[in-house]
C-alpha cells in the first residue's frame, strides 16, 4: 500500500531547498532566521513520519514545532531577493507560449482527481493500492511532480533550480502564513485534549433546545460567519465552531455527513470574510489600491451578496448533509 509519507518527504525536500536558497542569499539581511525556519519545518515533516508510527519522540517533534512558532513570532521567514523574469520578458514569453501556459497548472487538478476518484478504488488482492483517506494528498504530490516535469519540458528549462527559486519567491510572499492552517489543525488536538468541546457542548446543550436540527445548523453557520467577522479569518473560526457545535451536535447527535457539514460550514465563514474590515487584505487593501474615497466600498458591494449567500449555506447544509 502506498502511503502519503513520501509526499511529506517531497514537501520537506522543497523546504530544504528554500532554506538553502535563503541561507546563501547575501542580499537578505534576515537570511539565517528565514533559513532556520524552513530547515526546522523540513525536519518536522521528515521526523513526523516516525512520530506517526510511534518510533520517534513526540517531544522532540513538539520542541521543533514550538521553535518554528517562536521564529514566526519574530517575523520570520522574510522574503529575499527574487530572481525571476521582468515584465517585458514575461510579455514576450506570454506571446510565445500563449494558452500552453495553462497546461501544467491544469494537470494538477486533473491528476489529483484521477487519484482521488479512480485509483482510490483500485484494490489489487483486496488491499487498497492507496492509503485510505490519503488518496487525494498522494495524488497531489504526484500531480505537482507531473506538472513540473511537463512545465520544464514545455519551456525547455533544464535547470531544476529555476522552479525551486520560483517556489522560494512565492513562499517568501506567503511567509509564516503558509503553515498557519496546520497550526490551527494542531490546536484542535490540544482543544480536544483539554476538553474544550465538552465544555462548549454543555453550554450549547443547555441553551439550545434538544433535538432541533435546523437550529443547530443555523447556530453553526451563523457562528462561523460571526467568529470570522470578529477574527478576520475563517480558518481560525473553524476549530472553535467545530469543537463547539459542528462535531458534538451536527455530527454526533444528528449524524450529519462530515464532508458536507464541514465544507459548507467553512463557506459560511467565508460569507463573514466578505463583510469584515478585519480581513484587510481582501477588503481594505483593494480600496486603497483602487484609490477609493470610501474605504468600505468593497464591503458595501459585498454585503448584499454575503447575506443571501449565508442563508443559502444554511439551507444547503440542512438539505444536503442530513
Amino acid at each position: 500500500m502506498i502511503t502519503a509519507e513520501f509526499v511529506y518527504w517531497l514537501v520537506a525536500a522543497l523546504f530544504v531547498a528554500v532554506a538553502v536558497i535563503r541561507a546563501v542569499d547575501r542580499t537578505d539581511t534576515r537570511r539565517f532566521g528565514s533559513a532556520a525556519f524552513w530547515a526546522l519545518l523540513a525536519f518536522c515533516f521528515v521526523y513526523g513520519t516516525y512520530v506517526v508510527d510511534k518510533s520517534g519522540s513526540a517531544f522532540v517533534e513538539g520542541l521543533a514545532v514550538l521553535a518554528v512558532a517562536v521564529l514566526a513570532g519574530f517575523g520570520f521567514p522574510g522574503r529575499g531577493t527574487a530572481l525571476t523574469t521582468d515584465e517585458p520578458t514575461r510579455e514576450r514569453l506570454a506571446q510565445r507560449y500563449v494558452n500552453w501556459l495553462f497546461l501544467p497548472a491544469l494537470l494538477i487538478p486533473l491528476v489529483a482527481v484521477v487519484f482521488g476518484s479512480v485509483l482510490k478504488n483500485v484494490k489489487p488482492g483486496g488491499t487498497p493500492l492507496l492509503e485510505v483517506g490519503s488518496e487525494t494528498v498522494i495524488g497531489l504530490g504526484v500531480a505537482a511532480v507531473v506538472a513540473l516535469v511537463v512545465g520544464m519540458a514545455l519551456f525547455r528549462e533544464p535547470n531544476p533550480m529555476v522552479p525551486l527559486r520560483e517556489g522560494d519567491r512565492l513562499l517568501g510572499h506567503i511567509g509564516w502564513a503558509a503553515i498557519l492552517p496546520q497550526f490551527l489543525a494542531t490546536l484542535g488536538l490540544l482543544f480536544t485534549a483539554a476538553g474544550v468541546g465538552t465544555a462548549v457542548g454543555k453550554i450549547t446543550d443547555s441553551v439550545l433546545p434538544h433535538g432541533l436540527l435546523l437550529l443547530a445548523v443555523v447556530v453553526y453557520c451563523l457562528g462561523m460567519a460571526l467568529f470570522t467577522i470578529i477574527m478576520g479569518n475563517a480558518f481560525a473560526a473553524f476549530p472553535v465552531m467545530t469543537a463547539a457545535v459542528g462535531w458534538p451536535l451536527l455530527i454526533e447527535q444528528f449524524h450529519g455527513n462530515p464532508p458536507a457539514v464541514f465544507a459548507i460550514g467553512m463557506l459560511a465563514g467565508f460569507c463573514g470574510t466578505l463583510v469584515t474590515p478585519m480581513a484587510a487584505n481582501f477588503n481594505l487593501v483593494p480600496a486603497a489600491l483602487l484609490e477609493l474615497t470610501d474605504t468600505y466600498g468593497p464591503i458595501k458591494a459585498q454585503l448584499p451578496t454575503a447575506v443571501p449567500l449565508l442563508a443559502c449555506n444554511i439551507v444547503l447544509m440542512y438539505v444536503l448533509a442530513f
Binding site: T85, L140, L148, F155, E166
Partner: peptide
C-alpha cells in the same frame, strides 16, 4: 501543508 508543493510549478508558469 501539502498545498505548498504546487508552488514551484505555479511560480514557473508565472515566470513564463
Amino acid at each position: 501543508t501539502v498545498f505548498i508543493f504546487v508552488l514551484p510549478v505555479i511560480g514557473l508558469i508565472e515566470r513564463y
